[in-house]
């Protein structure tokens, strides 16, 4: 039961992009087309789950030596290395998958949502299975936000805004309205 709660909490109540403000850069950058947002979302889900699976044991190792405070350094290094590794392996072994996700992979290294999830798992005291659920939920939440927003964005693209609001300001205000709609979910847990 607690796993379902974590999942629903991640996707709807505490949506990673719209209410926790992580991963805003890719959210605004890649949400122009439906297709690229699906690709980015899939890549983020994949990297988040794998990064959680790796950093959890790493943290236990740090704990054993009493150097938990090095977790930021250790996590970001592990994630950066892992993303590079996946990219190389994927390019060689699975060209179709690389074609679909490849371009988005390097961009994820510095996506703060990935580091945020791994650190959040530790801060919330989740166990291994809960951490993986949290990572999956956050990845799904990111994809959902990206998909919804790419739909909104394709509609506002051709609208007639005042000159000063064209471009990024209009996008941000649209994001504010999408975020407002997600406030309706608060309190369902």
């Amino acid at each position: 039961m607690s796993y379902i709660l974590i999942l629903i909490g991640c996707v709807f109540v505490n949506n990673v992009v719209l209410s926790q403000f992580m991963g805003i850069c890719p959210f605004l950058g890649v949400s122009k087309q439906m297709k690229s947002s699906v690709g980015m979302g899939a890549a983020v889900i994949f990297v988040m789950i794998c990064a959680t699976a790796i950093t959890y044991p790493v943290y236990r190792l740090l704990e054993k030596f009493g150097i938990e405070y090095l977790k930021t350094v250790a996590f970001i290094l592990v994630i950066a290395m892992f993303v590079q590794l996946v990219e190389i392996v994927m390019k060689k072994m699975m060209p179709p998958l690389y074609k679909a996700l490849g371009v988005y992979l390097p961009l994820i290294t510095t996506n703060c949502a990935v580091l945020g999830v791994t650190i959040g798992n530790i801060d919330n005291g989740y166990n291994f299975a809960q951490s993986l659920t949290n990572a999956l939920g956050t990845g799904l939440a990111f994809t959902l936000a990206l998909l919804l927003f790419s739909g909104v964005r394709s509609r506002i693209e051709n609208c007639d805004f005042p000159e000063t609001f064209k471009g990024v300001p209009a996008t941000l205000i649209a994001a504010s309205i999408v975020s407002l709609s997600f406030m309706g979910f608060s309190g369902i847990i």
Binding site: L18, Q20, T164, A170, I173, S176, S179, L180, M183
Partner: peptide, 18 residues
């Protein structure tokens, strides 16, 4: 709330543009 954050940032960037 989060929604206000997006809104204020959008308005500030528009103001700077202006």
């Amino acid at each position: 709330m989060p929604a206000g954050g997006f809104f204020v940032l959008g308005c500030l960037i528009a103001l700077v543009n202006k």
